[in-house]
Amino acid sequence: MKGRVHKLGDDINTDYIIAGKNKRDTYDPQVIAKHLFEDLDPTLYPRIKKGDIIVAGKNFGCGSSREAAPSVIQAAGISAIIAKSFGRIFFRNAINIGLPVLECDTSGIEDGDELEVDFSKGVIINHRKRTTLPAKKPPQAILSIFREGGLVNYLRNHKQFEFELE
């Protein structure tokens, strides 16, 4: 996947991604996508174009277990998230819905950079900076889920967890 970067800072919590009050009345991410990052930067959502990539510092998605957080990011058209580290529940939720999340040193990536991401190999190419960044390669378990588009499809197809554990 290829996309333009929106660069965010450290410790972006799930309340900043989608506030509790906005997810109260519905769980349809399309309906509430317009509130994405509302309390963090209200100008951000209108600037997101389909395929764009979020790049953040450490601990992206810390806080609540709300799956609405990655779902709304996905509904807004974001194709991947790259961060120094993730809140662990957010990380699992993203994989489960088929949204690529990769860990990598993001300090050299800037707002507006053009990235190409190979999720299964864990490789990121920064076209504007002409650099290649190594990311943490996802384990087989995660790739098995991801290959089928998420955990819903995986379990509909397999009925049980059957993947290889490394």
Binding site: R66, E67, N93, I97, A141, L151, F161
Partner: peptide
């Protein structure tokens, strides 16, 4: 430990999680 809705659904279906 906390999980999201998809993990919860998977646990409800299979009784297991990775």
């Amino acid at each position: 430990t906390g999980t999201g809705s998809t993990d919860f659904a998977a646990a409800m279906l299979t009784g297991k999680l990775w």
